[in-house]
Amino acid sequence: MTGRVTGITPYPFATQPIEPNQRMEPDRIDARLLDLVQRNNRMSSEELGAKVGLSASGVQRRLKRLRSEGVIEADVSIVSPKAIGRNVTMLMLITFERTRADIVDRFKRAICRMPEVMSGFYVTGPADFVLLITANDMEDYEKFTRSLVRDNPDIERFETMVVLDRVKAGFTLPMASMARW
């Protein structure tokens, strides 16, 4: 599995995705564009151009290149969980009885198919995975845990922490040091 975000459909014209050990060195304009579009991807090419000193067509060419190279993986909208009735958010720590490649790979595939799992991380430390999960209510969460955890013989234990307040959410990466503005 590559280092790409799973669950977000990449651009169909992405021909040279960035590999996990490969690093893109953005120039000042690319870095400023990346900073702007990851905060608000609804800005027009004209607005972006005015902020970075390029024409609208120059902005479009750069964004197309950044998408085709896999630097921009997707353009998304962040939906308020509460606005759609997903009132409970939890962090779940999963620990396997034994950590084998086939077990890890099978679990990765399983969580990628589960819409309740907003983010999943294979981690070091006392747990093997950390999942960010959403549910309508505790009954919905209980059904989810039964299907994911209790029916899985490879899982030794799980621990759940209920989120009391979402203080910050997003995928924004710090770009200021690269943009030198």
Rank of each mutant, 00 (worst) to 15 (best):
D27L: 12
R28A: 15
I29F: 05
D30T: 13
D30A: 10
D30G: 04
A31N: 08
A31M: 11
L33R: 10
L34A: 07
L34F: 14
L34K: 07
D35F: 04
L36C: 14
R39C: 07
R39Q: 15
N40T: 02
N41K: 02
R42A: 10
S45C: 09
S45L: 11
E46P: 00
E47S: 03
L48H: 00
L48M: 06
L48K: 12
L48Y: 03
G49T: 09
A50M: 06
K51H: 03
K51S: 12
V52N: 06
L54H: 11
A56W: 04
A56I: 06
S57L: 05
S57C: 05
V59M: 09
Q60G: 05
Q60S: 14
R62M: 04
L63V: 12
L63P: 00
L63G: 02
L63H: 04
K64G: 00
K64A: 10
R65Y: 13
L66V: 11
R67I: 02
V71E: 04
V71W: 03
V71M: 11
V71G: 04
V71P: 01
I72E: 07
E73W: 14
S77K: 14
I78Q: 13
I78R: 12
V79C: 08
A83S: 15
A83C: 00
A83K: 13
I84P: 00
R86M: 08
N87R: 10
T89P: 01
M90K: 06
M90W: 00
I94N: 04
T95Y: 04
E97A: 15
E97G: 15
R98G: 06
R98P: 00
R98D: 14
R98S: 14
R100P: 03
A101T: 15
D102A: 11
I103D: 09
I103H: 07
I103Y: 07
I103Q: 08
V104A: 11
V104S: 04
V104T: 12
R106I: 03
R106A: 12
F107R: 09
K108P: 00
K108R: 15
K108L: 12
R109Y: 02
A110L: 08
I111G: 01
I111E: 01
R113H: 01
M114T: 03
M114E: 08
P115A: 02
P115M: 01
P115S: 07
E116K: 07
V117W: 01
V117A: 02
V117F: 01
M118L: 07
G120T: 05
Y122V: 10
V123F: 06
T124R: 07
G125S: 05
G125H: 03
A127E: 12
A127P: 03
D128H: 13
D128M: 04
F129E: 03
L131W: 06
L131A: 08
L131T: 06
L132Q: 15
I133E: 04
I133D: 00
A135L: 01
A135M: 05
N136D: 03
D137V: 02
D137A: 00
M138K: 05
Y141I: 03
Y141D: 04
E142L: 11
F144A: 07
R146M: 06
L148N: 02
V149C: 15
D151C: 02
D151L: 09
N152V: 12
N152E: 15
N152G: 04
P153H: 06
P153D: 06
